[in-house]
Design a protein around this nucleic acid. Structure first.
Lengths: 200, 200
DNA sequence: CAAGATACAAAACATTGTGTCTGTAAACGT
DNA sequence: ACGTTTACAGACACAATGTTTTGTATCTTG
């Protein structure tokens, strides 16, 4: 019942080739033949596994997501709201381990659909935590919940993208997390060194 | 010296057709012929104006950006830090006026490159304002400036996307701006109804 | 308003990528 | 060692691209 070694081999090779080539030339510039050549696989074989470029990319992305949720599970268990604290820390580490794939996904290659997958997953997880926590503590959000959720996830993705694009970590992951916690606690004006906004 | 009227006509038609079709089927699913058919223009004519699909999309995007910066100019003149306040309000209004184009761009169609253009432009403007203001008032950001900038822009884009995807405005633009100002001032925990984060 | 310039339409063309299908050889799991 | 599964190489029809040509309609400029 264990999966055939050959299929695993070729699938991995194709996924790796995709990521590598997208980083070099961008997704839309690639042909299926480019990918199979890089992976040293026959073109016909490609179609035995995937419907096309997009399908391959989608699988690479969902594999990544699956791996992420597995790594996140213990951290989320009894943890804080949204993605501050342990979950975020674990995410940053995962990005470090799989930097290339994250770059490709977070850059929005492939018509942004893989990124959409990723964002949706994050948004769902965030919203779930968010609502559960609000109900548990019986509080009401001070600004529109939908808007807040968007801002929240947009921020997370922006940070991950920034983190993924670094060749060498600009700071320890722990410090980045601390900064983001401060930001979430005190707001942007505080973070930028001000305590009050300019008048306008 | 004024541009030929026929040229303007066909270019507009092609740009409009692109936006319309992307909303229906997505960018990657389109052929040049689809676009020319929708615009009622000969295929050869398309290539007289643009190098291909991507080129057309890039021009549509840069036209939008140009229009935006023009509208933003008066608002930015003597205004607040980054995109809170008047500039943000003007942006939301612009999105309302050009909803379809914004949707297409902000969804990251076209391999996310048009979106990249947009984000880069916003980031540049934000960073400029940010540094100028910090220097003027002689303060230092409490968290890494680069990270802060990313978060900032990520948040803006998320809000614009949310705003663009609404069929009918969920609230007056002024109220959305007020919320975001509050958010920037007091932080996310406050906005979500808490004053302190959970422990983790 | 006239004349020269410019843009458009229509059709044909070579080129490239796609997706599918063969028969054959090799690698796999049991 | 066995039967089964998978990969390979090549060939195929098809679709989309990008370019070119020729005749016609429309514009701008003087």
């Amino acid at each position: 019942m264990a999966e055939d070694r050959r299929t695993r081999r070729t699938r991995r090779a194709l996924g790796g080739a995709l990521v590598e080539l997208v980083l070099e030339r961008g997704f839309s510039a690639l042909t299926v033949e480019d990918i199979t050549e890089q992976a040293d696989v026959a073109r016909a074989t490609f179609y035995a596994h995937f419907k096309g470029k997009d399908d391959l990319f989608a699988r690479v992305t969902s594999d990544l997501l699956e791996q992420l949720t597995q790594r996140l599970e213990p951290a989320v268990a009894g943890s804080a709201i949204g993605f501050t604290g342990k979950p975020l820390l674990e995410m940053l580490r995962h990005v470090s381990d799989e930097r290339d794939v994250y770059r490709v996904v977070l850059r929005g290659e492939g018509d942004g659909k893989p990124l959409q997958m990723f964002v949706d997953a994050c948004a769902a997880a965030t919203a779930r935590e968010f609502k559960a926590r609000a109900e548990r503590n019986n509080v009401q959000p001070r600004i529109d919940a939908d808007l807040l959720a968007r801002v929240w996830v947009g921020e997370q993705v922006a940070v991950l993208r920034w983190w993924a694009e670094q060749d060498t970590p600009p700071m320890p992951a722990e410090e980045a997390v601390r900064m983001l916690l401060d930001l979430a606690l005190h707001g942007r004006y505080w973070a930028s060194g001000f305590t009050t906004p300019d008048q306008d």
